[in-house]
Amino acid sequence: MGDLRKMIIVALVLIYAALSNQETAEASFGLTHINASYKSNLELVMPSGDISLQDASSGKEAKASSVLTVRANIPWVLWVRGEGNTGGKMQRVNGPATLKDQIRIQQTGSSAYKEITLSDKFKIYCRGLAGEFLIPTDFKQRFSWKDVPSDYKMRISFKLVPD
């Protein structure tokens, strides 16, 4: 009877020890948190150098082509306007006179895009989703017979903003 009691006590001690060891193993784990801050970004790149409308001629239209690049990681809108408070009209390099008609720009490519007549106020030129976009653009100017023969200039500004 004394041996039986001893055996029972030993068995209970072993069971307790086994259970204690199991609990210690389950508690052994760790966590790591990784964070990133990817800020919204907009980038507008225009080709270097000025744009020259070749073969200007009264009663006809002259055109020059260029490519704008937009890089954005959010939806974007590209606005455009003519500088100089001339109502979107090219101005004589040496004088205040302007051409009769405004300068126009148009996105070119496989789709048909709407033509934008420039003015002093910003107008929406085009818009898009996140990504990198090449925007082929035509700059157009019609010359009237009433336009004085001379050299003309206009500064065109583009503004890229979140949509």
């Binding site: 970004n41 225009m46 959010i74 090219m90 051409l99 023969p149 200039k153 583009f158 890229l160």
Partner: peptide
């Protein structure tokens, strides 16, 4: 505030020239 500051805008401009001859 940080989000707004980062996404403000980008601007660029170009000069367009034309020379109209006497005709």
């Amino acid at each position: 505030i940080s989000f707004l500051a980062a996404a403000v805008e980008d601007r660029d401009s170009t000069n367009v020239y034309a020379s109209l001859p006497a005709q």
